[in-house]
Write a protein that binds this DNA or RNA. Structure first.
Lengths: 198, 198
DNA sequence: CCGGCTTGCTGAGCAACGGTCAACAAGCTA
DNA sequence: TAGCTTGTTGACCGTTGCTCAGCAAGCCGG
């Protein structure tokens, strides 16, 4: 077994890296650790060890631990957002259906990572919670945009709550599929449609 | 200003207390702190200081910090559960309506505390998350019982997801009431009814 | 080739916090 | 009063977030 250090990225021992590279590497390590460890609980020591650098260097790039794991959380959120964003060409209903389908796929694929992300995001730290809020709001924007809905407060709240509904149901579904995948998708779109129809 | 120590409960300085009293006092202090501090972030030092005791004594009653804040979380969950549990006499629809009404009232009254509870419960620590799971499951039982629904897996999942929907919508509503309170209640019961009607 | 600049990088060290342990002392009973 | 139970404490330890002074790798102008 090779020495346990330096899991992400390679190169000669103790090589100098550009600032951008380092930041990216450190965030990547955080993302790797996300599924197994709540964001706020990952220790600077551990991350530094995996990167093959000293703690001090991490603090050189991220002023505090909070800055670090907020960056990791934001990176995770950005991945999700990018994956859900529909191609702007397609027709409205199809865009929304595609988003939903990709969302379920995402949760299926990255089950633990994603649940860990939501957990960490909803939980505890206000900074992280804020990142989560932003992401949710952005996702609501995507849906509102895709369906070309009028953008009033109540409708936004309904879409957001529907997101919470979806999130919870999909999480339960991947653990215990009480119905078929197409049924699930149909049910979710149906609920949203009825919700916006009043 | 009197000495800052010993916020909860009174008595002569450094009085001996029964084990039950101490535990209760410490948990009560945790509950007081909940709205302002994420559960996992409250420090043993702070709690002990407020109780007017040494750290060591807290560790005498709770083997680890985790045990302590899990107990605090469980206490908060029990309060909510007790508040929502309907009187078993009333007719089904009324029981459910009453639960919902009391839930909204609870969030209105203890806004920050409750949001903090949900945050902390959903977030990070697996032990705390488990308490939250149990509570949710118990609440689902209450609804299923009140409405006298057949207790199959899919229906339970739907009720649970509806809970997530309700939670999110009510949280948004208390921050920005985009509709009247009765409207909100009607909307929520309506969504649940339609959801179970398929 | 060399002096000097920028900048990635490190090690020693501090303070705060979770957790342990041996011992003290308050109150009860014999 | 002696002695037991048990609520209670202070001293101590390892970990972890964080700081700071300084080293060294690469690049420049001479």
């Amino acid at each position: 077994m090779p020495p346990p250090e330096r899991s992400s990225g390679a190169g000669p021992p103790r090589a100098r890296r550009s600032a951008g590279d380092r930041r990216a590497q450190l965030v990547a390590i955080g993302l790797e650790l996300l599924p197994t460890t709540p964001v706020q609980e990952l220790t600077i020591d551990e991350v530094a060890r995996r990167a093959g650098i000293s703690r001090s260097l991490l603090f050189h790039y991220f002023p505090s631990k909070r800055d670090y794991y907020t960056a990791v959380t934001r990176a995770a959120a950005d991945l999700l957002r990018a994956h859900l964003t529909p191609r702007p060409g397609a027709p409205p209903q199809e865009q929304a259906a595609g988003m939903l389908d990709r969302y379920v796929g995402w949760v299926e694929t990255y089950r633990e990572s994603h649940i860990a992300f939501v957990r960490g995001a909803a939980g505890g730290d206000p900074w992280v919670a804020e990142v989560y809020e932003e992401t949710r709001e952005a996702l609501v924007d995507l849906v509102v945009g895709a369906l070309q809905l009028p953008d009033d407060a109540l409708r936004r709240q309904l879409v957001r709550a529907w997101f919470a509904f979806t999130e919870d149901l999909v999480h339960q579904w991947v653990r215990d599929p009480a119905t078929s995948r197409p049924e699930l998708l149909r049910l979710l779109t149906d609920v949203l449609d009825r919700l916006l129809d009043r």
